[in-house]
Design a binder for these strands. Structure first.
Lengths: 198, 198
DNA sequence: TAAAAAAGTGTAATCTGTCAACTTAGTTAT
DNA sequence: ATAACTAAGTTGACAGATTACACTTTTTTA
């Protein structure tokens, strides 16, 4: 799907965008986010500052080059879920499939450290998920034939999209996600005391 | 507690802060958040730009002058809850008591419209609540004698603090909050179709 | 091939936020 | 009361992010 659909123009555009994103990530990892200016990035990618802003909406967006439209994925997960399966299970599987690999990729350890240690990026990353809450809520509501802004659906969407942020930084991402979805499915129960001596 | 504790100095400082906040809110409501610069605010309050930043951490903070440390209130709600009562109920009551009056105050209609129509302020308001998730999570965990970062407690804290954002913009704030806590207590259930013809 | 469309450039401007050195006024100890 | 101290505020300069604008180059297309 790449060769005939993209003319020279779009190919060059994509290349420029990629060059900017690569240069940005490299510099950020080298010097830290706050010690790299947009000008630095532009020069490293050999483009002008204005070009950077034509490709990215702001400095934070330079870091999250890839994870863009997961709207489609979320909606598909809900709509094309296995017959007879619940929406909750479908969303759990989707989160496990799409988020786990990214979060656990060993080449991303330094990337995650960069994000974690930069307040602006932490905030951006959190909002990145929650920003899709509206779309997901509408998709869920559509499945049940209720108003697109049905409160229960909006709440579920929001809670589900909180899951990655909550699981972030836990030892076992997978079981963390499962525990969160367990709460959403059956309600919150007071935790029991851990075995003494741990 | 106000007269003897505050000398002239602190009184003047508080007055300056209030003058800045008042000028800011007035201008924001008049012209819209994005069409007012910090310089405008400073001039309207007859102080220098740097003074504004000495009192407020940033432009958004000018709008949320009042609602600052609710950490203490959240922790108290959990710790001093009625004997035998569940944490969930205590938190629900606390949200209803502290958030409802503010959100419904009729004098705040234009204020809410300002926040709602300004993306930067929307984001700030949302984070304002979620920012206390760590404190609340630790308080809940403390009540049950588990590790301070217990996942179930962190998840509950987060979900509870999502409630105001979710209830915002609904017709009936109170029942919205109650519906959200119902989900947290008993799990999410698919919504039923609304009566046709509404 | 010429016009339209898109990508990119350079400049200048605005705005947020920070910094350092200075002034002023309130507080405190003598 | 007065000198020394301290916190609040001022001023001016500055860096970085972001936008607007007018211009050039390249690709596409009629």
């Amino acid at each position: 799907m790449s060769e005939p659909t993209m003319g020279r123009r779009e190919r060059k555009k994509a290349a420029t965008r990629q060059a900017i994103a690569d240069a940005a990530l490299r510099l950020f990892l080298e010097r830290g986010y706050d010690h790299v200016s947009i000008r630095d990035v532009a020069e490293a990618a050999d483009v002008s500052v204005t070009t950077v802003f034509k490709h990215f909406s702001g400095k934070e967006a330079l870091v999250f080059d890839q994870e863009e439209s997961m709207d489609a994925g979320l909606v598909a997960a809900v709509r094309e879920r296995p017959a007879g399966g619940g929406v909750l299970d479908a969303l759990k599987e989707h989160v496990l499939r799409t988020w786990l690999p990214v979060a656990q990729h060993p080449q991303r350890v330094e990337f995650n450290r960069l994000v974690d240690s930069t307040p602006a990026l932490r905030a951006y990353a959190e909002r990145m998920w929650v920003r899709h809450a509206g779309t997901l809520a509408a998709a869920i509501a559509g499945e049940f034939g209720v108003e697109h802004d049905n409160l229960a659906c909006a709440a579920l969407a929001r809670f589900v999209l909180d899951a990655p942020a909550l699981a972030q930084g836990r030892r076992d991402h997978r079981s963390a996600i499962e525990e969160i979805f367990e709460i959403l499915a059956n309600g919150w129960q007071p935790p029991h005391r851990p075995a003494p001596g741990t």
